[in-house]
Each structure stands twice: as C-alpha cells, then as structure tokens.
Design a protein around this nucleic acid. Structure first.
Lengths: 145, 145
DNA sequence: CGCACAAATGCAAATCATCGCAATTGCAAT
DNA sequence: ATTGCAATTGCGATGATTTGCATTTGTGCG
C-alpha cells in the first residue's frame, strides 16, 4: 500500500472524499521540493486538468491544513507556503534583509511550548513557525554600516 | 509634548514625513481597543477623509511596521491585525476551537529566541507572535468527547 | 449494480492586498 | 516666504484569496 492509498484511506475513514482533484493536488505537492505556494500548485495541476479551478486548489489546501496533512507558514511578503506533513517537524528563520530562509528543528521550540503549556494551561499545536530577523551574514554586514 | 508630537518628531528625525494621512491613520489606531485590521483602519479614516485611498492605508501600515511603531500578527482566519507598539512586548495564544485570544509576556519567548541566536547565529526580531492551540477550557471540553 | 445524500467542485462575483507611475506636497535650506 | 527635491499619495490596474450557490459526484448501503 503506497502513500497515496494511505492518505486516501485516512480521509475516507474520517468521512471525507478522495476526489481526482485532491489526488492531483497531493501529487503536485509530492512532486515539488517541499515548500510550494498555492499558485505553484495550481500551475502544476492546471496542465493535467485545465478545468480544475483555483478555488478548488485554495479550498483543498486549506482543507488539508485543517486535517493536518499539510502545514502552512507565512514567510512574509505575501509568500504563504504549504508543505506536506512529513516525519520531521521544523520551523523557519527568515532573514528580513537578504530574504534567505533557513530551517531549524522542533526541539528548541518544543521546549518553549512546553513551558507555555505549564504556565498558561494552553496547548500549542503550531507546527510550522516563521521567525523573522537577521541571519549571521547580514548581521555582520549590518554592523559595518 | 503629547504622544502624537513624539511620533512625528521621531519620524522627521529619521527623514520621513508627517502627513495628514499618517496622522489620521495613527489617530484611528489610538481610537481602537488595541488590535485592528487594515480594513477597520480604512473604514475609520474614510469617514474623515474620503479621498484617502486604501493603498495608502496598506502602505502606511506596512511602513509603520517597518519603522517599529506598529506590530502586526496573523491571528488566523485571514485576520491580519495591527497594533501600536506600546511599552510591553507581548504575544498571543489563539484557541483554534473557541477563537479566544490571550496575551502572554515576552520573557518565555525571549529565552527561546536567545537560544536560537546562540545555536544558529540568527537574531530574531519577531515581536508579536501568534501561537495556535487549545486553551485550558477547550482542552477539558475536548477530552470529554 | 443503482440510489440517495451529503461532500466537493466550478463558476463568477466579491473581497483583500499590492504595484507602477504620474501628480502632489512636506520640509529643510536658502 | 520661496524653492527644490525626494518622499508620499491617489488612481487604476493587477494579482491573490475567499465566498455563494447551483451542479456534479464519491461513498456507503441495500
């Protein structure tokens, strides 16, 4: 049983449908390198299924996020990206100067989440954070000026 | 010298202009209860200055964020909110179930930021985080079902 | 199989947000 | 007070995203 079937089964089990549109959208996301914007998914899918509407892409992505099969993060400047949920939970550091994006693991963040939960009784489920600031290179460049 | 003058002075000192539009937008934000969306600001100022365009509101808010006079956060559901920078840096816990929003201080977050900086050489400047999850009440309700 | 029904889609219109560019206008220096 | 210049605005166009509603179509069930 491949991953497509697994996802399909898991959706059906929860009372949702597995439509050709959803399969195409998931396939498009698997084909990409990880992050993709809604428009990228649409462009990819529109080749195979020209009648598939933008609205369906947006609604499906939102649906997949709601069902925890996909995560999304706003990397600033209108760049909202989507990514299939994989084993590795991670977050991003976005440099506001050079726009570079680096990835960090979940450990540090999880620790902070645990403290918040302990002190405020609030269980955080955010699993794809974008944190803005200056990367190492830009910090050096900045301090020279 | 009131706060308006202070902001004006601080902007001029940095080579920016204090225009009637900017003053109106700042006044609208002070009139609100803290958080406000771009559309709310626009609706508020459009009464006094119908010719003030939406583009100016969006550009001005973005400008004020860039100049650290305003912070913004995406509290989910397409609601990007803006807030005047006050003394107290804070963040928000947004319950995905009951939509309640609670505020937390900067201390816990700052600690995590410091660790990220130490381990990744990245200086985070994010000062208004929205973290999603379940509030105490909804966690109890959830565990019953 | 074929049916029933709710879930999902497509379309078009509404909404939210951004952008290029010409015209305007603060403001600092005469 | 006047002037010069760059910052800012308004406008209209464009792009991104969401929504309402009629229609289509998976899915479970007999």
């Amino acid at each position: 049983m491949n991953r497509t079937d697994e996802v399909g089964h898991s959706l059906r089990k929860r009372g949702f449908r597995v439509t050709p549109q959803r399969e195409l959208i998931l396939a498009a996301m698997r084909a990409g390198d990880g992050h993709c914007t809604a428009e990228e998914v649409y462009a990819h899918v529109a080749v195979l299924a020209p009648s598939l509407s933008r609205a369906t892409v947006y609604r499906t992505l939102e649906f997949l996020v709601r069902e925890h099969l996909v995560t999304s993060a706003d990397l600033g400047e209108g760049r909202r990206v989507f990514e299939l949920v994989t084993a590795e939970v991670h977050h991003h550091l976005v440099c506001t100067r050079c726009k570079s994006v680096q990835q960090i693991g979940h450990a540090l963040i999880a620790e902070m989440f645990a403290t918040v939960e302990r002190e405020h009784g609030f269980a955080i489920s955010t699993d794809h954070l974008a944190l803005f600031g200056l990367c190492g290179r830009c910090r050096s460049a900045e301090s020279l000026s």
